[in-house]
Design a protein around this nucleic acid. Structure first.
Lengths: 199, 199
DNA sequence: AGCGTAAGCGGGGTAAAGTCCGTTTGGTCG
DNA sequence: CGACCAAACGGACTTTACCCCGCTTACGCT
């Protein structure tokens, strides 16, 4: 036994995965994301509820799986498609191209992507504090050609919750070391964006 | 009657708000975030479950309120504290100082901040795709002194879900206009970060 | 003070997420 | 071909966020 790959997927499991994804897509079109329940999906696909949970882990997992499935195409483009999205172009061009592609991807699948975030009744999330403050300050900096609204949002999210929390949550890293690293990273990012040249 | 302010808060409501926040903090320390249920909080504070929901709207709302409460102090520092966090310093310095303060704030309150994100068993969220791809490409760009790991995370989040979804979700803006704006914003951000000078 | 009313309160009810464990089945090895 | 086992399945059960609506209470007005 070589343990490089943990185990191949069983045939019935693979079949059911496809069945579940197909049923989920149907239901999504019929009743919309917020009415798609685990029970409903189980019934529609003719499988047990336990099976649905085994596959997806949670309600949000369904949408994640759906999105991953749609994203596979984008991944292929990135790995072996034509430049600048695929290999062969200068890295900066590829980064720009990737962002463009991803924005379009999310715009196209925004309903599913939204449902991924779980909070099914959270409706309007709030993150205005950092963003507003940054917007005000950025206006005072001379940044010709920049879209301040968008830039403020980008920086706010670069700074905010998910990134930090993910690392903090990981292998118990709430200590001083990653904190210092984020602080340095933030300083570096801001100085690059604002065009501070020197030492 | 002047209708500028919708209505002042009733006295008992204010008292109960404080009581609930205090009870929530106690329970948080005793049983941890994931065991803090709405029923438990209601019982501990001697109020009805309906009241708890009226106050906070949802489970996540509790943690949001707790975090907002703690953040009020930071807000004060920003609005009227000493520079560089408060007014009086050059904007870039203030931006850097704000980021530093916020990183420390989140590091200190990471348990609560984490619980804010609702998905109580979501555990490890996945966002490796964009991040890994960006990391690889950024390494090919000459960026002296940059922490590529951190930078890749920052850019990935600047690009990713929450920002887009928030605007898409808002006043129904999935159309082409904001998409184009995000694409342009991304190009601008990347070029600033990577030090592309010219036209 | 007495009254009207709108906001706040209570807690039982509901639906849906997530868990458990006994049963079934696909795959492999003798 | 038959036995064995780990993985997959099913669906009843538990937990808990969230809703609903009749009751209570604080505040403004006369």
């Amino acid at each position: 036994m070589t343990w490089g790959t943990p185990r191949p997927e069983r045939a019935d499991a693979a079949r059911n995965r496809q069945l579940l994804l197909a049923s989920a897509r149907e239901l999504l079109a019929e009743v919309g994301p917020e009415c798609l329940t685990m029970d409903l999906l189980a019934e529609r696909s003719g499988l047990g509820k336990g099976t649905v949970f085994r596959r997806f882990g949670s309600r949000a997992g369904i949408f994640q799986a759906l999105l991953d499935d749609a994203e596979r195409d984008l991944q292929q483009q990135v790995l072996s498609g034509p430049p600048p999205l695929g290999p062969g172009a200068p890295p900066v061009d590829r980064i720009v191209a990737y962002g463009t592609a991803r924005v379009r991807f999310l715009a196209e699948h925004h309903a599913v992507a939204r449902a991924t975030l779980d909070g099914r009744h959270a409706a309007g999330r709030r993150r205005p504090l950092s963003e507003i403050h940054l917007r005000v300050l950025l206006r005072e900096v001379d940044l010709p050609g920049a879209d301040i609204e968008v830039l403020a949002g980008q920086l706010a999210y670069a700074l905010d919750g998910p990134l930090l929390l993910r690392l903090f949550a990981g292998p118990e890293l709430a200590g001083p070391e990653p904190t210092a690293r984020f602080e340095a990273g933030w300083r570096d990012l801001v100085e690059r964006v604002c065009g501070v040249s020197g030492v």
